[in-house]
Design a protein around this nucleic acid. Sequence first.
RNA 1: GGAGGGAUGGCUGAGUGGUCGAAAGCACCGGUCUUGAAAACCGACGAGUCGAGAGGCUCCCAGGGUUCGAAUCCCUGUCCCUCCGCCA
Length: 448
Amino acid sequence: MQVFCLYFMHFKCVRLILLQEEFCMLDPKVVRANPQEVALLLSKKGFQFPLERFLDLEEQRRSVQVETEQLQNERNTRSKSIGQAKASGQDIAPLLAEVGQLGEKLDVAKAALQNIQASLDDLLLGVPNLPDASVPEGASEDDNVEVRRWGQPASFDFDVKDHVALGERDAILDFESAAKLTGSRFAVMKGGLARLHRALAQFMLNTHVSDHGYTEMNTPFMVNADSLMGTGQLPKFEEDLFKLPFGDRSYYLIPTAEVPLTNLARDQILEANQLPLKMVAHTPCFRSEAGASGRDTRGMIRQHQFEKVELVHLVEPQRSMEALDELTGHAERILQLLELPYRVVALCGGDMGFGAAKTFDIEVWLPGQDKYREISSCSNMTDFQARRMLARWRNPQTGKPELLHTLNGSGLAVGRTLVAVMENHQLADGRIKVPEVLLPYMGGMTHI
RNA sequence: GGAGGGAUGGCUGAGUGGUCGAAAGCACCGGUCUUGAAAACCGACGAGUCGAGAGGCUCCCAGGGUUCGAAUCCCUGUCCCUCCGCCA
């Protein structure tokens, strides 16, 4: 409780600070106006902003753009006068001669501008979102700050098994078969365990729809490059994705439903009365885990394919930090109903994702590993994704389209939740007790 | 897979080489009227970008091309619709 209060007060301060600071987003204008401050904030995330190069490119862009626009203006004016002369039956030959080399000069200027612009875009697309002022300093997960705990890890009067050992009975969790079918980092589930896995997903989906006011969505599991650009997985993190060549382009398997759900707002202008838009989807997720060889190779914690129930909010900018608390709470509620002890940590700058301004991880207690492990990650992306995908709403106060704020969080990762249920609700004989809230989904099965 | 048609502002939809960033309607916003609201009427009303401002520039699916000048003509691609074939 004490922790909670402290956390809350802290949060209030942060909101105040945010209101004063204009540059809580990665707006080109903002970068231009406060390059030093931006660079400083980004360094909190462990990112070194190429300040010199940016300022240099900006300077070039400015002068070339002015030149180009002047040439265009001249051309437009002259073309217009040719049209008028022609209409009034005058001789236009001398006018045509005058415009002669204007076109060539314009082409040169345009090409130069395009080059500079492309370099600038390249640079800016690779820059992560600015961390919120409340984000703890730090380089790795060791610097994350615990915000609160729920539940008491159970003490067992027998030797606890991890989920891999528990799954060996009758091969209900079968990694060997999966390796035969596909390769490493896949799993086959059987019988009651497969059903429990399905029950978990159904239960989460139902809870978010019925109790938390989300709209259930069903989306494609493959997306195009534009969508991944919008949410920030591309261009920087292509090696984390499964890519499917298709004709002369490629589709990608979604690494999270955040991609299709958030991109629904791409190139849209939403009316204020449509907000907040809260969506939930149950999808498989595919990750190459390129940078994780050797990590979590045992068991179901880190797979190439897993299922997840994902929560996405699209909200007015002023409300986004509030929405992050709400979203995190919705994910937590699933763990509470499943009677799984967990803690919530605020990620430090160095551990945060590319597009996030603020992230809470929820870590569930795993008796088999004797530690808390990530089971959900809830982030406020502020306007970072919205800017990339041009997702906007019409602000009634200004009458103008303005960028939305986007948030997402797992509610929850189904595979990891299954692991947590197995390990936390295991019995001395190696069976698993089905949590009460899942009984309606289990067709009379009380144990597995 | 074959044959056609289409893509224009928040939406519907006109516009086939020269003041077209674009008619009209709807929606939204402001006002008149009303106890209040609705209706009616009047007015404003796309977005981005540069600029202190005046104003400039860009954008009519995307990318190329023709032209002094392209929403409009040509080429390529994407998506949508209709018909035929195939299909869970």
